[in-house]
Amino acid sequence: MSATAERESMLKLNDVHSYYGQIHALKGISIDVKEGEVVTLIGSNGAGKSTTLRTISGLLSPRQGEVLYKGNNIAGTPAHKVAGMGIAQSPEGRRIFPRMTVLENLQMGAFVHGKVDPNDLARVYDLFPRLKERVSQKAGTMSGGEQQMLAIGRALMASPKLLLLDEPSMGLSPILVEQIFSIIKDINKQGTTVLLVEQNALMALAVASHGYVLQTGQIILQDNAKALLANETVRKAYLGEE
């Protein structure tokens, strides 16, 4: 507790409201992600988890509220500028560039830097050896799990300060899910702050230090990860316990 209190806040959302046309998708979200933490957002389908990430990364601009990144309000800043500030997102559904090769996709990840840092590339290959084997394969022809690795690897190529991961475990086999979560831990240990959106609440809360529970665009619960794991509502709704 005392350790986190000293840490700087890296990302802070204050009463954020986002819309898709008439649809009010976020109804006043406030979250706080401290430097060096892994924070997770959990919630059922359509709760607004992806929308929160899209609002942070600038794909969507909120109609109301603040998105403070390192103390500056970046709400409404276009996505390409947000990317330049050190925020990388691995979007829902992977969204890799299908007609580019694996290597080209990774190079795209480093687009903000202009050129590829060999250390970043080495780190990604280290975390995902499979990608190294497939460097010249067209990304669109890879399996779902491989594409997921590529999407995360691509986000890492930006060597971000803050990494937004949208359901990184989706569509992966159980062993790979374990691996992905331990990789997330590694990434975090190497100094990247992570905001993690997950369906797999158990795993997410295991790696995270803090968690928020979203429901229909609002935060209904927040606590440190251990407490949430023990929380009855969470256990019922998201861990499938009766």
Binding site: Y19, Y20, G21, Q22, L59, L60, S61, R63, G76
Partner: peptide, 10 residues
């Protein structure tokens, strides 16, 4: 179209 405030909304 739903051109609320973001270019890529839909």
């Amino acid at each position: 179209g739903d051109d609320d405030n973001f270019e890529f909304d839909d």
